[in-house]
């Protein structure tokens, strides 16, 4: 018996409309800067704005720093938890979930109290140190995604036996980590990296309260003061995120193909 697919299609259609109507409306609005005709004037203005370029490249750089720090922190942690301290796994999973539960504003206020210019570790006393603090904050924010991605990748390979095999062949810890473990969880690290990138590009709370010239506060500033440009920016931000997700799919699909070959 062929089951009716009308119900599922209606549900799918409603979901799609819920998602697409605001997007299309925003896009349509962003094209209306010139009276009476559609144009990409708003986009031209945005791209020509030096603050856009500055804040966008600032956030890209910070995202890359966050990814590097996150990978350095998460990969060895996940590896040794799997290998040596599996009992701690639930605790670590809980800790890595905390950033989803604790609002960013609580974390950033904590930072401001702990690391203000009269504290033991005055991270906020100059701009470079504050940048670093912001990157640390982003590592925390991205932790749930990064840890899960990497841990899943490690579950897919037999970490313990591969480690022992490499060890019996004379490999040191560094060799095992860089030549055996890293290459085999590369796809997982990449997927964690793309999500991290998307999270950092759209982050507002940390950057705003730490007063750093990131993309999120710039979006907010334009949104408060201009009419058409915020719509164009929203579309751009959306495309950047989508590009990340698309790349993620590509990488994962590539890995699947490689495994099936």
């Amino acid at each position: 018996m062929k089951r009716s697919t009308v119900g599922p299609w209606i549900a799918f259609g409603l979901g799609a409309l819920y998602f697409l109507i605001p997007l299309i409306a925003t896009f349509e609005f962003s094209l209306r800067m010139r009276r009476g005709t559609y144009s990409f004037d708003a986009y031209a203005v945005v791209f020509a704005d030096p603050r856009f370029q500055a804040s966008f490249s600032y956030s890209v750089l910070l995202a890359l720093i966050t990814i590097v720090l996150g990978v350095m922190l998460v990969v060895p942690t996940a590896y040794f938890i799997r290998l040596r301290l599996p009992k701690l796994a639930p605790l670590v999973e809980f800790i890595t979930l905390l950033p989803l539960v604790i609002p960013a504003i609580v974390i950033v206020f904590g930072y401001l109290r702990l690391y203000n210019s009269s504290s033991w570790l005055p991270f906020t006393s100059n701009a470079r140190a504050t940048d670093l603090l912001l990157a640390f904050g982003y590592v925390t924010l991205a932790l749930p995604y990064m840890y899960r991605a990497v841990d899943t990748g490690m579950r897919a390979i037999d970490v313990r036996t591969l480690t022992e095999a490499a060890e019996s062949l004379g490999a040191s810890w560094a060799t095992i980590l860089f030549r055996v473990i890293f290459p085999n969880v590369k796809v997982a690290i990449l997927s964690g990296a793309f999500i991290t990138f998307a999270v950092v590009m759209g982050e507002f709370t940390f950057a705003s309260l730490l007063d750093r010239p990131a993309f999120g506060p710039y979006l907010q500033l334009i949104g408060a003061n201009r009419a058409y440009e915020p719509a164009a920016l929203a579309i751009i931000a959306f495309l950047v995120t989508w590009a990340c997700m698309g790349l993620l799919q590509l990488v994962l699909a590539g890995a699947r193909v490689a495994r099936q070959r």
């Binding site: 036996t161 095999a165 060890e167 019996s168 062949l169 040191s172 030549r179 055996v180 085999n184 590369k186």
Partner: peptide, 29 residues
């Protein structure tokens, strides 16, 4: 430590390095 003992070990689960070719696996040590 195991990497100082000069032993050869074969595991039930093969434990070949998935990211390396057969030749690279054999030449790893």
């Amino acid at each position: 430590r195991p990497n100082q003992r000069n032993i050869g070990m074969v595991f039930q689960a093969y434990a070949l390095f998935p990211n390396m070719t057969v030749a690279e696996n054999v030449g790893f040590g």
